[in-house]
């Protein structure tokens, strides 16, 4: 359980980091918090030739709200710091709530928000939360900058739009849909990977739901947004009928995987139970 040999650089600028990642001789990989990468190194599931530690790049350490009211979270921002930030707690509580489910506090003290997004474990919380919050991703590489939506960012299990010579420099969250939010997941023990989970965001206007977002994690190789359930809830109050309708639509839309932790049927039923709980909690939060 020791990593194979690799070289290590901690560049002080983004330009230098991008130059190092373009190294053709050694397979270079970005290191931020390392809470997913280092276990893979320890188990030798990953054998990179060079780790580029981006946590000492000053322009990647920012967490701020811009003039348009969008939240920027830089690549070096730790999960614990993001969850504790007053602007996140006030404006994007779903993000803070999702982070609270990641591993353990000792992991969140080092793990980064962007690192979890780029790693893209299908059971991870932040990909689902970022899709529910319609985040945008800034990617920098030898060819310059580009911005990708959450729909295009997640490609498949452990795969995102970030190429091997690119860095996700920040994730940007537009203003949240409203005050209603919930993140719920099924775990065997606190801190485990979720068998299935759900992120819900919504606003309440004149006692009706608006801008409803429903996104599941652990239900496939990608976070699964369920627009059928969202539009069924749009414009109506959350009563028993609305809950049952949305739950049935979500059950029909999901095609969850089976593995050693849970069968597909168990995951679907669990997802529906979680959706009921999460919608109720999100709706109550707007009251």
């Amino acid at each position: 359980m020791k990593p194979g040999p690799f070289d290590y650089e901690a560049p002080a600028s983004l330009t230098e980091a991008v130059r190092l990642l373009a190294d053709q001789e050694r397979e270079a990989k970005v290191l931020a918090g390392g809470q997913s990468l280092i276990p893979m190194l320890n188990m030798r599931l990953a054998r990179p030739g060079l780790l580029v530690d981006i946590t000492r790049v000053p322009e990647l350490s920012g967490l701020y709200v811009d003039e348009a009211g969008h939240l920027h979270v830089g690549a070096a921002v730790r999960q614990a710091a993001a969850a504790a930030a007053p602007e996140v707690r006030a404006g994007w509580p779903l993000l803070a709530g999702a982070i609270a489910h990641i591993g353990h506090p000792q992991i969140r003290n080092r793990g980064t928000v962007c690192g979890s997004l780029v790693h893209h474990d299908p059971a991870a919380e932040l990909p689902a939360a970022s899709l529910a919050l319609e985040a945008r991703f800034t990617i920098v590489g030898p060819g310059g900058n580009r911005t990708v939506t959450a729909e295009d960012f997640f490609v498949s299990t452990f795969q995102t739009a970030v190429g091997p010579d690119e860095i996700l420099t920040e994730v940007v969250f537009p203003p949240a849909p409203g005050d209603g939010w919930s993140f719920a997941e099924h775990v065997q023990r606190r801190g485990d990977f979720a068998a299935v989970g759900v992120a819900v965001a919504l606003a309440r206007r004149q006692n009706a739901m608006h801008r409803v977002r429903v996104v599941f994690c652990g239900a496939g190789p990608l976070p699964v947004r369920v627009p059928e359930a969202e539009s069924a809830l749009e414009g109506r109050p959350l009563d028993a009928e609305a809950l049952e309708g949305a739950t049935a639509l979500a059950g029909a839309a999901l095609d969850p995987p089976k593995d050693v932790h849970a069968s597909a049927e168990w995951r679907r039923e669990g997802a529906q139970t979680l959706l009921r709980q999460a919608l109720t909690e999100a709706w109550e939060r707007t009251a």
Partner: peptide
Amino acid sequence: GVCGACTVLVDDVPVRSCLTLTVQ
């Protein structure tokens, strides 16, 4: 990173020393 036995304080914050490189 699961068991917590190796937890130490890095700049006063508890972290897993088995998931941290010395160079970091």
